[in-house]
């Protein structure tokens, strides 16, 4: 195997996708539930501009915490995210080739694209695609974005999201995240447990038992108001950061079971409303800049369609 360690896995994917013309962006420094929240995916999927990027994104899903006891479910884990816009015709083949680069032999394993349509109510986004199974395990989420922030996608972004830990289980032939080797410098092996186990236990306790509910509710209200204020100030990028934060606070409240089922829907609608406004403001700002990354022909089709909808 060419990927004996977790960091080899990251390096291999980075190299591979860099060779496919992807910008190697770095993780965003805010808590988020999925790599999709990174502006390099969410915002860049909006409008007609071309974009190719790849990056690692740490993800936080407070609800998924199991105090480090479940072998493959953690509240903090890593995604490797690839976005290709427009999605190339051979996107599935490119992806399968990336698996070969990781040392996965498609003639040995049962690799399948199983329908899984993606919808993010908070991002006002949906897409069609698959989860990719290898021997029954979901190792990748593969989505053609159709709508983001309530805006129809054209051209379409193809999003490939690798679950790094699950892939690493395979590549390293172990059963439990804790056993994963993160790095091996020959005389010293550092495992996933060495780095994250204590964190996982403590964060599960924080998410489920300690997070300060009244304070989180206040924070949510502040973040919502701040987003709206920044939108008024015509600053879509800072405004978006506050949407990301609000979304995470919502997830924490959810994990604390502080939000009733009926309220839950209200909160989701609030975040979605913010995402939509940010998406529109961002598109507006890019149009003012003349959509510099768009192909001329596609830009024209896009603008014609936008004008059509407005008329």
């Amino acid at each position: 195997m060419s990927c004996a360690t977790f960091q080899d896995l990251i390096l291999t994917l980075q190299n591979y996708w860099a060779n496919q013309g992807c910008v190697l962006i770095q993780p965003y420094d805010l808590e988020m539930g999925a790599g999709t929240f990174h502006p390099a995916t969410f915002l860049r999927s909006i409008g007609p501009e071309n974009w190719r990027a790849a990056y690692v994104q740490p993800c936080r899903r407070p609800n998924d915490g199991r105090y480090g006891e479940n072998p493959n479910r953690y509240q903090y884990y890593y995604q490797f995210q690839v976005v290709l816009k427009p999605s190339p015709d051979n996107i599935q083949d490119l992806y399968l080739d990336s698996l070969r680069h990781l040392g996965i032999d498609p003639l040995e394993h049962d690799i399948r694209f199983v329908e899984d349509n993606w919808e993010s109510p908070t991002l006002g986004a949906w897409g069609l695609g698959w989860e990719v199974w290898m021997d029954g395990m979901e190792i990748t989420q593969f989505t053609y974005f159709q709508q983001v922030g309530g805006l129809t996608c054209y051209p379409v972004t193809g999003e490939i999201t690798y679950g790094l830990e699950r892939l690493a289980l395979y590549l390293q032939g172990v059963e439990d995240f804790k056993q994963l080797v993160w790095s091996n410098s020959g005389d010293q092996i550092v495992t996933y447990a060495d780095i994250f186990h204590q964190y996982e236990v403590e964060m599960s306790a924080y998410n489920f038992d300690q997070a300060n509910i009244p304070s989180l509710f206040n924070q949510f209200d502040f973040l919502e108001a701040e987003t709206l204020r920044l939108l008024d100030a015509n600053l879509p990028l800072p405004a978006y950061e506050f949407v990301i934060k609000a979304s995470h606070i919502f997830n924490l409240l959810d994990a604390r079971q502080a939000i009733s089922v009926t309220e839950r829907q209200q909160y989701i609608l609030k975040v979605r409303n913010l995402s939509r406004q940010v998406a529109n403001a961002y598109l507006e700002s890019r149009m003012q800049l003349g959509l510099p990354l768009a192909d001329k022909e596609i830009k024209e089709i896009y603008l014609a369609e936008v004008n059509n909808v407005q008329a």
């Binding site: 003639l107 040995e108 394993h109 049962d110 021997d135």
Partner: peptide, 27 residues
């Protein structure tokens, strides 16, 4: 499981699937 391939190493496909179902059941 109904695989979509005549694997050159069926044991590894089975082992992979066993590794998936265990955490599902423990959930």
């Amino acid at each position: 499981t109904i695989a979509n391939i005549e694997s050159n190493n069926p044991a590894s496909v089975i082992q992979g699937n066993e590794r998936v179902i265990a955490p599902r059941l423990s959930d």
